[in-house]
């Protein structure tokens, strides 16, 4: 009995079979549901923002630090793509090539900024990320040579994958889906390895983390870097999708949206970020009738969400699972007692 309990593999991670099935099902459902190019675009956007929601999940869910910096890194990703593909530096590279450049650029910038900002803790740190977003926005909006100023940068060429030009949203969808699922698996893997546990220890009990040999500061910097890269990839794909990048895509106000995506699905889980991004992105389209009151409903629902389900949908799911389990356990113990009689 005891040996059976000593399983190392984490059960939260569903098997590859279930995963493939659910991805295929999701693909088919979207294919059937999305009759118009517009609705396909909404789903594609949701997938892109999902990357940003992952980044929130890494920083807030794993590391316990509330960061608003996501939009700043999205901007860095998007403008890197825009600059490299439109030949503003005097040379042009393909969007996919530029996407590969985004990753080291974002890693470097996020690491340096993380080193600076993470000297602060908790609320202090959250403040400083707001400052970062504000500084980044001002630069995006004013510095023409790099960011095109108020007009932004347009004319990003369409992406070519496997000899095929991705000219519309239908064509984009399968590639985006695969990529987002792949990144999700990487994030989930981080959660279940040493790095994820170190982050969790920083989140839950710093003193315990220290006596267990976790360098709290460095772990947080690494988490910040990872989340920065995730956001930058999201921003890069965003600009590749709409073939345009401008400062007002990356304001402080929009950062709340990504936070809510992750919180809605459940900040403790990767799949939660995925579900949250989809729901938050698609819901406004469904509620179009209430356009005038939509923002109000949105604000109220954020408060209600925090009050009634701070751990999001997956949190509720987990609670229900636990309750069912304990009920089962209760039944078994009753049976055993009867047997003893």
């Amino acid at each position: 009995m005891a040996e059976k309990k000593l399983e190392l593999k984490n059960k939260r991670f569903t098997g590859p079979f279930t995963l493939i099935i659910s991805v295929v099902v999701f693909y088919l459902v979207v294919k059937i549901m999305c009759r118009s190019l517009y609705s396909q675009m909404v789903v594609n956007m949701a997938l892109v923002f999902c990357l940003v929601a992952y980044s929130v999940s890494v920083m807030l869910g794993m590391c316990g630090e509330l960061s608003f910096a996501g939009v700043a890194f999205m901007g860095i990703g998007a403008f890197t793509i825009a600059n490299l593909t439109t030949g503003r530096f005097g040379f042009k590279i393909s969007p996919l090539g530029a996407f590969l450049v985004v990753i080291p650029v974002a890693t470097f910038i996020a690491f340096i900024i993380g080193l600076i900002l993470l000297r602060l803790k908790g609320t202090f740190f959250s403040f400083s990320t707001i400052a970062l977003v504000q500084v980044a926005y001002t630069f995006f909006n004013n510095y023409r040579p790099l960011f095109g100023g108020v007009d932004g940068i347009s004319g990003i060429p369409s992406v070519r994958i496997l000899g095929k030009q991705l000219t519309n949203h239908y064509l984009w969808f399968p590639y985006l889906l695969v990529f987002v699922v792949f990144v999700g698996l990487v994030v989930e893997h981080i959660r279940n390895t040493q790095l994820g546990r170190s982050m969790a220890s920083c989140r839950d009990n710093e003193t315990a983390a220290r006596v267990l040999g976790v360098n709290v500061y460095m772990t947080k910097v690494i988490a910040f870097t990872i989340s920065g890269v995730l956001s930058a990839m999201g921003g890069a794909l965003y600009s590749m999708l709409i073939r345009y990048a401008s400062a007002d895509m990356f304001t402080y106000d929009t950062s709340a949206k990504y936070l809510i995506m992750a919180m809605f699905g459940g900040v403790q889980s990767t799949i939660g970020a995925f579900i949250g991004a989809l729901i938050v992105q698609i819901l406004p389209q469904v509620l179009k009738v209430f356009q005038r009151y939509f923002q109000l409903i949105w604000g109220v629902s954020i408060i209600l969400l925090m009050v009634f389900m701070p751990e999001g949908l997956t949190g509720i799911f987990r609670m229900a699972l636990k309750r069912r389990k304990s009920r089962k356990k209760g039944r078994i113990s009753v049976i055993q007692e009867k047997g003893e009689e």
Binding site: A200, T207, A208, V211, N215, V216, Q268
Partner: peptide, 22 residues
């Protein structure tokens, strides 16, 4: 402190310190 832990100083507390959410 964290490097001391890595060198091999283990520690437990009066009230156990765990990662409550894990």
């Amino acid at each position: 402190d964290y490097r001391r832990a890595r060198m091999g100083i283990g520690r437990t507390f009066q009230s156990p310190r765990f990662l409550q959410r894990s």
